[in-house]
Design a protein around this nucleic acid. Structure first.
Lengths: 71, 71
DNA sequence: AGTGAGTGTAAAACATTTTTTACATATAAT
DNA sequence: ATTATATGTAAAAAATGTTTTACACTCACT
């Protein structure tokens, strides 16, 4: 089965709230390096971290993360 | 930061569609052991696999998975 | 009694995500 | 010029998710 691509708009939501990567990381229990890597699309977050992030932004999960099966 | 719990109702959705763990696994590109472990709550799926599962069931992501921060 | 399908479980190997530590660059402010 | 904040990156180790192989149990069926 072909691997797709998980996308996110964390950077946009974060900047709209004037949070640094460090501050967001602190809020959701991750390091700034992890936030950075996810924003850069280096890898997808764990499901738990993804939930924490959408909760922090107070938006629906699918407003932050999406999946492109053919990515 | 305290680790919460990721919940899912894969088993219910799967049984409603009369799919075996094996058949669901085949559809989403995972083994039956992985499906089983996730249904039993042994661990949370990757974000990609979670997306594949909700797509397979054709329901919103948050109808399958939820997060309890105090779990 | 035997067969097949579905499920639960386990251990080892493997893949992916996360942390830690560290260094580099850029920008804004003093 | 220096300092502080924010960001990008990298490598190794740790933690978590996945596959493979294997064995066990149940249930329906013949």
């Amino acid at each position: 089965m072909k691997k797709g691509r998980v996308q996110n708009c964390i950077k946009e939501l974060r900047q709209a709230r004037r949070l640094s990567q460090q501050a967001l990381g602190d809020h959701v229990g991750a390091t700034r390096q992890t936030i950075n890597a996810i924003e850069q699309g280096k890898y997808a977050p764990s499901l738990e971290l993804a939930f924490r992030i959408s909760a922090e932004f107070a938006v629906p999960f699918e407003d932050v993360f999406s999946f492109d099966p053919d990515g």
